[in-house]
């Protein structure tokens, strides 16, 4: 196989995406810690670093377009660039959700702690693991793993329902916790959304490796 100019560029694009993925994972992880450890300083750091993630997104967009325009990729190369270009804003949105969680943490940290935050840490851990596995599967182009990750999303959905009901009950039992509970509900919603986004990433990996569109099909 000859060495192609496009190979270098695709490698570089993959590196840029993985850096963004790493930064996103990190943001989610630290946002949750700012909440569980009631660390407002950490929450502010997460919000600050979101700007870096935004810049990374713009850079990947620019570079993807450049490759499309100049290298005119076809077949697998084309699917790769398209997948990266579609995964990038998803990662950025996950990071935005992490930022929103940090926002909530800033407010929650001024309120008394509620019952170990119910199932939220479990939801966060599941989402973070799914994200990591999804990105690894994308790097190795292993669609079987991606399909498996998609199936995990229901765990988050179920946890979300539990958390929702539980927080509702807490508000009814003790109306003074209403503000804190409401913010925790937001956090739960953010985590539930992150789960959906990870699913989208997995679907794009199936497209990349199998050229199959499974989004909105029975499979997803």
């Amino acid at each position: 196989m000859e060495h192609r100019i496009i190979d270098q560029q695709l490698d570089l694009l993959r590196d840029k995406l993985l850096l963004l993925g790493g930064a996103t994972e990190n943001a989610l992880h630290r946002a949750m810690r700012s909440l569980t450890e009631r660390d407002s300083k950490l929450a502010r750091e997460v919000l600050e670093e979101d700007k870096i993630i935004d810049r990374m997104e713009v850079e990947i967009d620019r570079f993807s377009i450049e490759i499309l325009a100049l290298q005119q990729p076809a077949a697998h190369d084309l699917r790769f660039v398209i997948s990266v270009a579609k995964i990038t804003p998803i990662l950025e949105r996950i990071a935005d959700h992490a930022g929103s969680i940090a926002d909530a943490a800033l407010i929650l940290n001024d309120h008394p702690e509620i019952k170990k935050l119910v199932d939220l840490p479990f939801m966060a851990q599941t989402a973070a693991e799914m994200l990591k596995t999804a990105l690894d599967a994308f790097t190795t182009e292993d669609s079987a793993i991606s399909r498996e990750v998609i199936l995990r999303d229901h765990k988050i959905d179920e946890a979300y329902k539990r958390v929702f009901n539980e927080l509702l009950q807490i508000m009814i039992d003790d109306p003074t916790t209403t503000t804190a509970s409401a913010y925790l509900l937001f956090v739960a919603k953010h985590l539930e959304r992150i789960g959906d986004y990870v699913k989208d990433i997995c679907e794009l990996n199936v497209y990349l490796t199998e050229a199959a569109f499974i989004k909105h099909s029975r499979e997803s």
Partner: peptide
Amino acid sequence: MFTSPDEKLTEDYITGRF
């Protein structure tokens, strides 16, 4: 053909591997 050819040989040709 240009997004997901069936044959490896086709893929290699249209992506400029030979």
